[in-house]
C-alpha cells in the first residue's frame, strides 16, 4: 500500500517537518521477533541451557568424572538423573559436557559460516570464471559424504577438539556458500547496487557495505540451522567413539552408555534430551528470525 509520511511533495516548496521518528529496519525486526512466542520461548530455553552449562557445574558441585553412587542407579535414587555404568552422576556429566558440545557446535558453525560467506560472496559478486571455479570447488565438498570425511579426518589427526571442529567446519560450508552466492546475485542485480556503482563505488564497498547487509537475513537463518546441525554432528562423532575421549560431551555420554540403553534408559535419554532441547531452541530462534525478516510477513513500507 502507500507509504508513511504525508511529508509531501510538490515541485513547489516544502511543508511541515515529518512527524514520524525514524524506525530502523533492524529495530522493527527485533520487535517482531520478540512478539513471536515460539521464538521468544526458544531464546529463553537457549538462555537457560547456556546458564546451566556455564554456572551449573559450580552450583551443582559434583565431579562428573568421579564414581559417586551405585552404577546404573535410576533417577531420584540418590542422584537426580541417575548414574552411568561406572556410577558417575549423569546430571553432572550433562552440565559439564554441555560446554564442550556447545563450544564445538558454535565454533564449527562460525567456521562453516565464514568459509561459506567468503566463497559464496566472491562467486556471486564476480560471476563468470571466478564463479565457475569456486562453484566447482564447492560442489566437490558438497558431494563428499560428510560424516565419512569427518570420521576419516578425526581418525588420521587424532580426535582432539581442534580436529573435530575443523572436520565439522570443513564439511558443512557448501550450502552456506550456495545460499550466499544466490543472494549476492539477486541483490547485485537490483538497481540500488547499480546506483552505488554509478556513484563511484569500488568492488569492496559494493560487496561488504551494499550487498552483504542486504543478503544477510536468509544467511542468518541458515546459520542458526547450521549451528544446530553442528551440535548434532559433534554428538554423532562422539557417539561413534570419534570424539575427544578426554573431553566429556553429551555425545560422549550417550556413546559410552549405548550398551545399557535397555537396562538404564536414563543414561542415554537424559543427554539425548539435552541435545534435543538445544537444537530445538536454536531452530525456534532461527524460525523466529526468518519470520521477522520475511518481507511477506511484514507490512510493506
Amino acid at each position: 500500500m502507500m507509504s508513511s509520511e504525508p511529508m509531501q511533495a510538490t515541485a513547489a516548496p516544502v511543508e511541515a517537518a515529518p512527524a514520524a521518528k525514524p524506525d530502523h529496519p533492524m529495530r522493527e525486526t527485533l520487535k517482531i521477533f520478540l512478539k513471536n512466542r515460539s521464538a521468544a520461548g526458544g531464546l529463553i530455553l537457549l538462555g537457560l541451557i547456556l546458564f546451566a552449562t556455564i554456572f551449573g557445574p559450580a552450583i551443582y558441585g559434583v565431579d562428573p568424572y568421579e564414581m559417586v553412587w551405585m552404577p546404573l542407579s535410576p533417577p531420584g535414587d540418590g542422584t537426580p538423573l541417575g548414574t552411568d555404568y561406572i556410577g558417575r552422576d549423569i546430571l553432572a556429566g550433562i552440565l559439564v559436557g554441555g560446554r564442550v558440545t556447545l563450544i564445538v557446535g558454535a565454533v564449527s558453525a562460525v567456521m562453516t559460516i565464514v568459509i561459506g560467506l567468503v566463497v559464496g560472496s566472491f562467486a556471486g559478486f564476480f560471476g563468470g570464471r571466478v564463479d565457475a571455479a569456486l562453484m566447482k570447488f564447492t560442489e566437490f565438498f558438497q558431494v563428499l559424504p560428510s560424516l565419512l570425511l569427518a570420521m576419516v579426518m578425526v581418525t588420521i589427526f587424532s580426535p582432539s577438539l581442534g580436529t573435530i571442529i575443523f572436520a565439522i567446519g570443513i564439511v558443512g560450508w557448501a550450502q552456506i556458500a550456495r545460499l550466499t552466492r544466490a543472494e549476492f546475485m539477486r541483490i547485485a542485480s537490483l538497481e540500488y547496487v547499480k546506483a552505488a556503482r554509478a556513484a563511484g563505488a569500488r568492488d569492496g564497498y559494493l560487496m561488504f557495505r551494499v550487498i552483504l547487509p542486504g543478503s544477510l537475513p536468509p544467511i542468518v537463518v541458515a546459520s542458526a540451522l547450521v549451528t544446530g546441525a553442528s551440535i548434532l554432528f559433534e554428538a554423532g562423532l562422539s557417539f561413534l567413539g570419534l570424539g575427544d575421549p578426554n573431553q566429556l560431551s553429551w555425545g560422549l555420554i550417550i556413546g559410552q552408555n549405548q550398551n545399557y540403553l535397555m537396562d538404564a534408559w536414563w543414561t542415554v535419554t537424559c543427554p539425548g534430551i539435552a541435545i534435543f532441547l538445544t537444537v530445538l531452541a536454536i531452530s525456534l530462534i532461527g524460525d523466529g528470525i526468518n519470520d521477522a525478516l520475511n518481507p511477506r510477513a511484514r507490512k510493506r513500507g
Partner: peptide
C-alpha cells in the same frame, strides 16, 4: 532534498517511509 521539493528533515527517514514519487 530542498531542491527536489522534499523537507530538509526528510533525510532522517528510511526509503520505505516515502511514497513512490517521493
Amino acid at each position: 532534498l530542498a531542491a527536489v521539493g522534499l523537507h530538509r528533515e526528510a533525510g532522517r527517514l528510511f526509503p520505505h517511509q516515502f511514497s513512490g514519487g517521493q
